[in-house]
């Protein structure tokens, strides 16, 4: 009995062509949805965001003329903050390359609670390793490698890292890694050595405490080199 009824129900709508078409479309949609769902399932592993140890903020600034303390702060703008591997890539897959940065502009990638300024509490007793970019064709890759080392926390003393800066300058591009404690020679030098490894460079690099840079940016003496 029941089966007969079902058959009747199924058969009846087929008499009208319109209904048949609609039914077919629905069935197709359902199949597609099912396919999509199964695809999503297979990608599930890729759809988890992987947390980073720290939240990181990207800052940008541009100076057309001579850089001085006051106008520099005005032009410095926080662009975005991220805290997962995937969001990091969303930023760095779409961020204009450092090779395209116009002269006078900079990217600063800092831990969220640290402002990329000398005066900030976390930087006051710190300093920076400075690497001159000699080969402009390698700058995009070198910048990415050093950024990955920061957000991936592969520096041994990564808690001492404040942030990383790329300066596009007429006098030559620079990558700087800012650290918290200039007086800690071992920690600071370890960071410098690892940075050289990451950037695949042999040239000596130097570390200058911010205090010295503040006094005289031109004649600041470096404290360590590796």
């Amino acid at each position: 009995m029941t089966s007969k009824n079902e058959v009747e129900c199924l058969v009846e709508p087929t008499s009208s062509e319109e209904t048949t078409t609609t039914t077919t479309t629905t069935t197709n949609n359902e199949t597609e949805q099912q396919q999509e769902q199964s695809e999503e399932h297979s990608l599930d592993q890729n759809l988890i965001k992987h947390p980073l140890q720290n939240r990181w903020s990207l800052w940008y600034d541009y100076q057309s003329g001579k850089i001085n303390q006051e106008n520099w702060v005005d032009s410095l703008k926080k662009v975005i903050t991220f805290d997962s591997v995937e969001d990091f890539w969303c930023v760095f897959n779409n961020l204009p390359n450092v090779s395209n940065l116009k002269q006078g502009s900079s990217y600063h990638l800092f831990k969220e609670d640290i402002e990329p300024k000398w005066e900030h509490e976390s930087n006051r007793k710190g300093g920076k390793w400075v690497v001159m970019v000699k080969d402009k064709s390698r700058c995009d890759n070198q910048w990415l490698q050093s950024v990955m080392a920061c957000v991936g926390e592969t520096f041994d003393s990564s808690e001492d890292i404040c942030g990383i800066v790329y300066n596009s300058r007429k006098s030559g591009d620079k990558i700087s890694v800012w650290t918290k404690t200039a007086y800690d020679e071992k920690v600071t030098k370890d960071i410098g050595s690892y940075l050289k490894k990451v950037l695949e460079i042999d040239a000596t690099i130097t570390y200058t405490p911010h205090q010295d840079s503040i006094r005289s940016s031109k004649s600041a003496k470096y404290l360590y080199d590796v």
Binding site: L47, V79, I80, E86, C90, N94, M148, V151, E153
Partner: peptide, 24 residues
């Protein structure tokens, strides 16, 4: 939480890693 270079690069092409953030 540590990610070495290769691990980070592994997630570079995930569907979640592509959307350009409006801030950019």
């Amino acid at each position: 939480i540590v990610y070495d270079r290769n691990t980070l690069l592994q997630y570079r092409n995930s569907p979640l890693s592509k959307t350009p953030p409006p801030e950019l």
